[in-house]
Write a protein that binds this DNA or RNA. Structure first.
Lengths: 236, 236
DNA sequence: ACCAGAGATTGGAAGGTACCAATCTGACAC
DNA sequence: GTGTCAGATTGGTACCTTCCAATCTCTGGT
């Protein structure tokens, strides 16, 4: 351990210190934090930048830095289904529906940035939370990047498996969210009446070189799932 | 003008320079950019930080900084309906359904952080894109922060009006997204068959002190609207 | 040809200084 | 009391330097 950047350590320290404070409690000044923790003001600002971006604090020039009110939502981060469910105090589980190698097809090929006639591995799973269906998940990988995947144990965390076995680390993802009417198969699998609506999330997972690694379409039960996040004003 | 921070100017300059470049084109090194533009490397890093956060470039330590592939989605920013529609090449319009002062009620009071029996101004609008219904919007403000609002022209941009008339600047917002089944009134107003699904966005707009200024519930037509954004892996 | 390793290159982290701009505080006049 | 203005406080911007860690390149040996 200890191979941690100072600004990161400081960020966690400040997070811990402010954890119990009521909203709008002022933090020490940047200069004070710097001397208290024996670091430069630059490092303090770096840590505060991260906390501000995450919605933990807000800053007002000339006034100070303050504990932000409890946000409805953690700032927007990329999470796996398992992480997501645990954050909601639900126990994640999986039922494997299919794992096969197929032709990409135009749509998937387009999202993965590969040729339409190339092979992709498709993993289809019904995902459960506390034993009840939560969503249908359809993951596609370029076949040449995950040889032998279909023979692995696919009931656990795919992300962990990808990282451990193939060195694929997904750093960011583009997502498109839409409300859909569930068809017969989908509503049956999810255990909701025909005609119910669902929340569809189409995701393309990218590695640290912004190259597509994975394309996933997930359809959530509308009655059990919502998406929460914070947005900020930005420059054009 | 010209009262612009250097890192911001540099960010825009780099954005313009890279606009035409194909993905994965390397940018000059940070040190080169610094000397070329006559600024310090710190300033360059600040500009690149912003571009990276916005998904315009990606950086690989030891290798360089590169133009990011065209993202599906601009990074997540807070936009008004009008801005949002124009970004999608649609012409925004409004039909005012109601503008009145009412009791807050528990739910709205909770979201706005005011007393349940206090007054709030409610503005209800049907919003159109290229002449066709796009969403139903229900905005609530604490009444004491927007005196006389109900008598204003409410068919244009509310955000612009708030800023100009009341000095309210909304800097960030917490959002909760869910798929819903539309009821009779909603589907009639939106011009879709009864039983269709819709995308509901509940938003609480916050000023720069993270104080709630506005609570909005918007229900979008599922067939015309989606939400696109990029997420990143983050630290716990 | 191919591979391994040394060295150069590049982004990342950290320290320091100086000054600016927004805000807050308190003294003072009325 | 109330308002106003000067000065102190605090975050924001910008500059500099130094070293580290990951990556790439190129040289030389086999």
């Amino acid at each position: 351990m200890a191979r941690q950047a100072k600004h990161e350590e400081l960020r966690l320290a400040l997070l811990a210190e402010t954890a119990g404070s009521p909203p709008h409690t002022p933090l020490p000044t940047e200069r004070d934090i710097a001397t208290d923790h024996g670091v430069s003001r630059n490092t303090v600002r770096q840590a505060l930048d991260a906390l501000e971006a995450a919605g933990n604090v807000y800053r007002v020039q000339g006034a100070g830095t303050f504990v932000a009110p409890p946000v409805v939502s953690k700032s927007l981060t990329l999470t796996s289904f398992s992480e997501d469910m645990r954050a909601r105090d639900l126990e994640p589980a999986s039922r494997l529906l299919a794992a096969e190698t197929v032709r990409a097809g135009r749509q998937i090929a387009d999202r993965l940035g590969v040729a339409p006639d190339s092979d992709v591995v498709r993993v289809s799973r019904l995902r459960l939370a506390d034993g009840a269906p939560m969503c249908l998940e359809n993951v596609h990988f370029p076949a040449d990047r995950v040889p032998g995947l279909v023979d692995e144990d696919l009931t656990g965390s795919l992300y962990a498996l990808l990282d451990a076995r193939y060195g694929l680390d997904i750093r960011s993802a583009d997502q498109i969210i839409r409300a859909v009417d569930l068809d017969e198969t989908e509503s049956a699998l999810l255990g909701v009446p025909l005609g119910s609506s669902g929340l569809r999330v189409q995701r393309v997972g990218l590695d640290r070189r912004d190259t597509p690694v994975e394309a996933t379409t997930t359809i959530y039960r509308a009655d059990r799932y919502d998406i929460r996040f914070t947005v900020r004003r930005a420059q054009p």
